[in-house]
Design a protein around this nucleic acid. Structure first.
Length: 545
DNA sequence: AGCCTATGCAGCC
DNA sequence: TGGCTGCCCTAGGC
């Protein structure tokens, strides 16, 4: 090892000794070009003037600062952002596909035009050679199905609408411009995004996470919600008055081992049932009207594991799909429902964030799992042993983010378009942005990635409008409405300006960023109406072909 | 600008 | 099975 001197490349920091803190004047020795702290134990002592042990006792302790990887703590490389590009730690498996031997940068699933989305082999019939052919052929395959209209321009936004991160979104089933949003605090937002300032937040429905919202097909004036507070709510959208259909924690808090939380929720309209599932593996069935429990709770996933999603088949409502933390999505017949009586068990390698039947025929299944893969089963009537496709896509689990869920486009009659937010960022002209991806799940192709230069946060919650070409996305505490570029321009021509509404305490820097007027009154959203500048808003991007 | 933290899952024993 | 620990691209508040 080469000898080191005090003023070598590794900078050093000096810590004062306790016993004589006033004697050490270390200021001039502190250097702040720091990439991390590495102690220089024995070597450091060799550097010390050994002859003066007595004075050394009074000398400050010296710690050298040198470059090391914040991920694996080893020297010689560094993980983290370099500008707007994130450099992976080479000692870790790929952050995208989770396989060792390469990093995200050179992951075979991340080719230039596709940004990490590629169909995985169908069972074991293909191997790596197939990928190579696939990558060579891919650019020649026409990419965009003519029918897809991608909402890629932000036309409306409420910045910091919620006081905590958005957890779920739902469009009103009949009123085209109403978007419902739930947040981590359990609050429910009702926003008319055409009259952007018409927005309300109901704060007293739940006490924590509003995990899922669903409309009843009979009465579209009320919405059902499942919350981590263990209750089901039924809320009148006009008044905000809510009644509780069920409370799993009637005796209050007795520690986390007994506190029940509700995650998955769906409505079986045919039978007038509300189905909910909890974090202990159980599902509950209630009569929507009388609020009576139809039967005892049924264990539908591994005991003690969280059931995060429930979905009734749109064609055969008795067919139920559930998914959860036991790494399975499961199919059930509601008419013969018992623990262990599932019709099918779809194995995943990690927690399944969501599982949905396709919106029209109900014959396909789309799941999102925490192993960074979207899976598609092309027919529930066929072989369910393994998915028809696995699509590698970055949507990592992060405890601070709402779980990512791939959502069908309800307007796509071919049942192939899905939307999902992306976790890892891409460098867009020097800015790290997290796009929202549109994926053709019949081929695994990335149809479009949409970004807005002003949205620098991750957008895990996305919902496509049932009738209009509109995407709603929830990113941190804010909501965004996207429309296809042409339509967005129509909106502008109609003098309905692109409108950003600021809520809560919003600093002027952020307002500037979003192009809001420099209204400094902090906490009132209604005043600071601003339109985005053309240059900013036009930076939204589709995939290069 | 830079700390702090809420918080879910997996892997380990 | 249970309890602990650690965590790779967070976001906002102080």
């Amino acid at each position: 090892m080469p000898p080191r001197t005090r003023r070598a490349a590794s900078p050093k920091i000096v810590i004062e000794r306790d016993e004589n803190s006033e004697e050490s004047s270390s200021d001039e020795e502190v250097e702040d070009e720091q990439n991390g702290v590495v102690y220089e134990s024995e070597e450091d002592e060799v550097d010390e003037p050994i002859e003066d042990i007595k004075s050394r006792e009074k000398k400050p302790i010296t710690i050298s600062l040198k470059k090391f990887c914040k991920v694996c703590k080893k020297a010689g490389h560094q993980a983290g952002f370099q500008g707007a590009t994130y450099i992976d730690c080479p000692m870790k498996p790929c952050f995208l596909c989770k396989l060792p031997g390469h990093t995200t940068m050179n992951c075979p699933h991340r080719v230039a035009t596709e940004h990490g989305v590629i169909p995985a082999p169908r069972k074991s019939t293909r191997h790596s050679v197939d990928y190579i052919f696939e990558r060579q052929l891919r650019p020649h395959v026409p990419a965009i199905k003519p029918g897809f209209l991608i909402p890629d321009q932000v036309t409306r936004a409420v910045i910091r609408y919620h006081s905590r991160r958005v957890t779920c979104l739902e469009f009103h089933p009949t009123n085209n411009n109403i978007l419902l949003s739930g947040d981590k605090k359990g609050q429910l937002g009702v926003w008319d995004y055409d009259k952007v300032y018409e927005k309300r937040v109901y704060t007293n429905i739940h006490s924590c996470l509003l995990n899922t919202m669903r409309f009843s097909s009979v009465n579209d004036g009320t919405i059902f919600g499942a919350s981590s507070d263990g209750t089901i709510s039924c809320t009148d959208l006009e008044t905000g008055i809510s009644e509780s259909l069920m409370n799993l924690n009637p005796n209050g808090w007795h520690g986390p081992s007994s506190w029940r939380m509700l995650y998955g929720l769906d409505i079986n309209s045919e039978k007038g049932l509300v189905l909910v599932a909890d974090n202990f593996g159980y599902m509950y069935m209630l009569d929507k009207r009388t609020k009576d429990k139809i039967r005892e709770a049924v264990l539908i996933h591994k005991k003690g594991s969280k059931v995060v999603g429930l979905h009734c088949n749109p064609i055969q409502p008795d067919l139920l799909l559930s998914c959860g933390n036991d790494h399975f999505a499961r199919l059930w017949d509601l008419r013969h429902l018992e623990a262990g009586s599932s019709l099918g068990n779809l194995a995943h390698r990690r927690v399944v964030n969501s599982a949905y039947f396709s919106p029209h025929t109900g014959s396909k299944i789309l799941t999102t799992a925490q192993d960074n893969r979207i899976r598609v089963w092309d027919s529930i009537y066929g072989n369910m042993e393994s998915p028809s496709r696995e699509i590698v896509h970055s949507h990592d689990f992060n405890r601070h983010l709402t779980a990512f869920r791939a959502e069908w486009d309800p307007k796509d009659s071919s049942e192939s378009l899905a939307v999902i937010g992306r976790y890892i960022s891409e460098n867009y002209n020097g800015v790290a942005l997290h796009p929202i991806d549109f994926i053709d799940v019949s081929t695994g192709q990335l149809v479009a990635e949409v970004i807005d230069p002003n949205i620098t946060t991750i957008s895990p919650v996305n919902k496509l409008h049932p009738r209009d070409d509109v995407l709603a996305s929830g990113s941190s505490r804010s909501l965004f409405i996207w429309r296809p570029k042409d339509k967005a321009e129509d909106v502008q021509q109609n003098d309905e300006k692109k409108t950003i509404v600021f809520c809560g305490k919003t600093d002027s820097k952020r307002k500037k960023k979003f192009g809001g007027e420099s209204d400094e009154s902090d906490d009132e959203s209604f005043k600071s109406k601003g339109k985005m500048s053309k240059t900013k808003s036009s930076a939204s991007k589709k995939v290069k072909r």
